[in-house]
Design a binder for these strands. Sequence first.
DNA 1: TTGTAAGCGTTATCAC
DNA 2: GTGATAACGCTTACAA
Lengths: 339, 339
Amino acid sequence: MQPTVEDVARAAGVSRQTVSNVLNAPERVRPQTRARVEAAIAQLGYRPNRLAQGLRAASSRMIGYRIEPVHPHALGSIHDRFLHALADAGRAEDHHLLLYTADDAEGEIAGAVSLYKAGAIDALVLYGLHPGDPRPPALRAHGVPFAAFGRTGDDDGHPWVDVDNTAGTAAATRHLAERGHRRIAFAGWPDGSAVSDRRAEGWREACAGLGLPLGPHLRGEDSLATGAALGARLLEHPDRPTAVVAATDTLAAGLLRTVRARGAELAVVGFDDTPTAAALDLSSVRQPIEAAGRAMISALLNPPLADPAPADPPLGGGPQAARLLAPELIVRGSSTGTP
Amino acid sequence: MQPTVEDVARAAGVSRQTVSNVLNAPERVRPQTRARVEAAIAQLGYRPNRLAQGLRAASSRMIGYRIEPVHPHALGSIHDRFLHALADAGRAEDHHLLLYTADDAEGEIAGAVSLYKAGAIDALVLYGLHPGDPRPPALRAHGVPFAAFGRTGDDDGHPWVDVDNTAGTAAATRHLAERGHRRIAFAGWPDGSAVSDRRAEGWREACAGLGLPLGPHLRGEDSLATGAALGARLLEHPDRPTAVVAATDTLAAGLLRTVRARGAELAVVGFDDTPTAAALDLSSVRQPIEAAGRAMISALLNPPLADPAPADPPLGGGPQAARLLAPELIVRGSSTGTP
DNA sequence: TTGTAAGCGTTATCAC
DNA sequence: GTGATAACGCTTACAA
């Protein structure tokens, strides 16, 4: 059994509430008394019980996070970096992450709502958002506070943080142009993926800004095999590019495999700077995940959660701008040959 | 505000305790009454408050887990698989993971003790154990229950689960021998790493069992660059091997880079089956992490935590045996050429 | 400044 | 089978 306020009070020769005051409103306690209480706390190794605090305060100081199964195709991900960043940012605010699993988005919602209603979590962190994502509206309907890492396109009702994907591929494209490449392709996922679209947009805009013709825009699912196949298509393309920007490291790794297997010359830049990128000597765009984690926690704990006054001016504007974080290009050997 | 037992009781026209009985001892309640209460629960969306339950039961149903910063050298890791497995195994038992961060082992201990004393966690999961690891004795001294994934060599006082590293490299070695290799090297970390030692042992024993001469045993820190350097040493070795078993995928990837850059022939098998292994077409030994996660949770929640009777027979023997899990060799292109 | 009293939501005990 | 009472550990009015 752990010591309680009562034990501390007895040891210090004061009442239970004085101990509480020492912890929560020290200025109200005579220094001498305070010192005695603090000595007792230290000596007994007393820690306030978080469950009791939470029950009283109606706040568990826990943030829910659904951990997804590791996708077998994708090469390592930045997910573990994100999780660590989140946990670390929470530490400063005395909040912790509560991990849970679910089989699908529906189960994720049900699990989150259940944890919230049970008072196990105060809020939720969502990631991997996509257009039409069912989670934000569902959580909103159930009154579960949350912040999102990524956007769905309909993000006005909740705090979010995102990485400026467009800026990332634009930087990659400019880097390639600086190395002398004039014909730069892009490899992304199919159709309506908002992330891939934004990354393609950065490439397109950068090419336009530089006065370069637009190279081929290839699409395929995010796997190594697809990347390799796209590489073959690129090398056999009638209008063969000398460089390619890929929407992910996985695709880039596939491209690179084909390129290297054939001894061909094709500069490649990936996205995410996964550990695999370093292993393959692949240039890649690195997301500022640590900053994103801090921004998420801050978004969750500061205005939205603390003061949900209904008639206040909407969030937008100032703070929102700081939530779009700029990525950084990491240059390696895969993009530094000459065309 | 969420509904409470009281609300449910009022809605069902019974008393608070009857509601509690419906949840915790349904057989004691007349079916008719029970149905009425259950309807009220469903209609109100009532969920028992976990904080209140925890306070009452002196158990938070939370398991602490320190998430370490991502090691920048290592290629992806199996850590995210482990974490998911753990969280998923906990779900079945209605337990959740509480993530926390720390700067070093000392901070990890302090954090864990603090969380435990605060009633925020019931127990801890440790991983990355090494001989002389300060954590088990410290936690034991503070009375914090824990289970370890991995062994320190002095593991009698706590539940643990480990992967049979020796069996893994032995399987890799036999696989290479079957492909016709007669001279097989090993690349591991330096000195007293228990894990590397066990992996080297599997290779050594398998070679002996097969009547093969022992190839060179190289050592270096776990990085890509080191792997690449070891690869060069191997290719220039006076007694050049035709295959090598590496203690990690990171070392294997480095070896492979040198091998492929020089167009040399050297079969390589890694360890961990990280996503990078698939990317590099690298054969690798895959740890049964999902099973390990389940075993950890089970070790934590079943005998040790539920019934810490002091004078009982020690754990050893039967259950212990099942805690050493057999890995699986995943064969890919890096080891299927002929010597 | 310090102490008294009440309540957060749950469950176990014990009468009825 | 059901209902009143108490207790888990903490905090916050409020009174001394």
